[in-house]
Simulated scan of single mutants.
Amino acid sequence: MRGRDRVRFRGGPRSLGRVVRAAGQETTFPREKPLTLRGHSVAWVPPLVLLVGIVVIDLTTGVFGIVAWTVLVPGIAAALSGLRTTAVFAVLSLVVYILVTSVWWHWNETEVAGFVLVLVGGLLATVACAVRLRGVRRMLHMRDIADTTGRVVLRPLPPGWGGLEHSAVYLSADVEARVGGDFYDIQPGPHGTRVLLGDVQGKGLGAVEAAAALLGTFREAAYHDQGLGEVAGRLEKRMLRHRAHTAALGRADGDRFATALLLGFPVGDAGAVEVVVFGHDPPLVLRPGAVRTPVVVGGLPLGYAALGSGLPPVCRVELAPDETLLLVTDGVTEARDPAGEFYPYVDELTRAVESDPHLQGPDRLVAFVLDGVLRHTEGRLTDDTTIFAVRRRRR
C-alpha cells in the first residue's frame, strides 16, 4: 500500500464486498466479462455446449424429440454474452431447428409451433440482452460518478505528502456505498503539516455531505492559519454552519455532529506533535517493541463545544523519529465478533510489536489492523471503518 492513496477490492466474504481505499490506486470498472479464461471471454461456451448437446440427444436417442429446447440457447447467451453473440446464437438455434427437423422426421410432430417458439425465443433473448447491457452501462456510469465524489471527499494523497509517511484504509459498512461518513486528509502548509481524521455521526448522503464540508474547511484553515487551535475553531464553526443550513432546509439531520482527531506537525520541532481531540479516541503511538496511549485532554465532538467549556486544548505529545501514530474510527474500536466481544486491537498490537520491531511502519501497521478487524468480525462490519497510520518521513 505504500505510496498509494486508495485501492478497492470486491468479492469474497461480506466484508470484502465493501469499499476499500488504501493509500491512490484507482480501480476501474471494465466492460462486463462474466466468464473469462486467461483474459479471453468464454461466455459463448455454455450456450454452444447446450446447443450441441440438444442436437446430439435428439438425433441419437430417437426416444423423444427435444429439438425445440434450442429455444433455451439464446436465453443462456443473453445472460452471459454480448448482443452480437446472442443474435448469432438466436439465428444458429433457428437454423439447427430447421435442419434437425428435416433430417429426423420431427416436422409432423412439432409442425409450425416449434418453429415459431424458437424464432420468438431468439428475438426475445436478443431484446433482453440489449436491455441488460444498457443497464450495465448505466450502472458503470453511476459508479464513475460515485468514484468522482469519493475522490472529492477522500482525495488521493501523494507519497511523502507534507513530509509524512502515511497509509490508510477505508471500508464502508454499506456494500454498495463508495464513500461514507469517515474522513481523513493531510494538508501541508507554511506553518507545518496538519492531519485530520474524523467520523460524522450517522450514515447516508447526509454524513457524506457533512464530511465534505469539514474537509473543505480543514484544507483551507490548515494551510493559512498559524495555530492548530485556530484550525480547530474553524472546524467547529463549520460544523455549526452546516447544521444550521440543514436545519433551515427542514432536514432531520440538523443536530448532526462529528468526532475528530486533529494533528499538527510543527515546523522546526521534529520531536513532538500537537493533538486536538474532539470526542474521539486518542491516537496510539507505536515504536519498536512498545505501544503507548499519549495523555491528552479531549473535548466534546465538533458542533457541541458550546455545551462544554469551549474548544478542546492543543496538547503537545513527544514523538520520537521512529514512532508512528495510529488513528482509527469506531469501526475498529467498536468492532465485535458474533458473540458480541469487542476487538482487542490494542492488546494485539502490543503483542505484535513486541515480536516484530518493524510492524510500526505505516503500510504493515494498517494491513495488520485491517486483517485483525476482518478476522474478528468475520467480515460483518456494522460501521464505516478507517485505519490511518502516519509518521515523519525518514531522510
Results as ranks from 00 to 15, higher is better:
R4W: 01
R4M: 03
D5Y: 07
R6I: 05
R6S: 11
G11S: 08
R14Q: 11
S15W: 13
G17T: 06
R18L: 12
V19P: 00
A22Y: 07
A23E: 10
Q25E: 13
T27C: 05
F29G: 06
P34A: 06
L35W: 10
T36A: 12
R38Q: 10
R38P: 01
L51S: 15
V55Q: 02
D58K: 01
L59H: 02
V63S: 13
I66Y: 10
V67S: 15
T70V: 15
A77D: 04
A77T: 04
L80I: 06
S81Q: 07
G82S: 03
T85P: 00
V91K: 00
L92T: 14
Y97Q: 07
T101F: 02
S102M: 13
V103S: 12
H106N: 12
E109R: 15
F115H: 03
L119A: 15
L119Y: 01
G121E: 04
R134F: 09
R134Y: 12
R134Q: 14
V136Q: 13
R137N: 07
R137K: 11
R138F: 11
H141V: 04
M142W: 07
R143W: 08
I145Q: 15
A146V: 15
R151I: 02
R155Y: 03
L157H: 02
W161Y: 14
W161L: 14
H166Q: 09
V169D: 15
D174N: 15
A177F: 08
Y184T: 03
P190F: 01
G192R: 03
G198V: 05
G202F: 07
L214S: 03
L215N: 08
T217H: 05
T217C: 10
F218Q: 09
R219M: 04
Y223Q: 08
D225M: 09
G227Y: 04
V231Y: 05
G233R: 02
G233K: 02
E236T: 01
K237C: 02
R241W: 06
A244G: 07
H245Q: 14
R251D: 09
R251T: 05
D253R: 10
G254M: 09
D255K: 12
L262N: 07
L263P: 14
V267A: 08
V267G: 00
A270E: 11
G271V: 00
G271W: 00
A272C: 05
E274W: 02
V276D: 04
G279C: 02
G279L: 02
H280F: 10
V285R: 15
V285D: 08
L286Q: 11
P288Q: 07
R292T: 10
P294Y: 06
G299T: 01
A305F: 03
S309K: 05
P312F: 00
P312L: 00
V314Y: 00
V317Q: 00
E318Q: 07
A320V: 01
A320L: 12
T324G: 10
L327D: 05
V332T: 09
T333R: 14
E334N: 11
A335E: 04
R336T: 13
D337N: 15
F342D: 04
Y345P: 00
L349I: 12
E354D: 09
S355Q: 11
S355F: 01
H358G: 15
H358S: 14
P362E: 11
R364F: 00
F368Q: 02
L370T: 11
D371K: 05
T377N: 10
T386M: 14
A389N: 06
A389M: 04
R392L: 03
R394E: 15
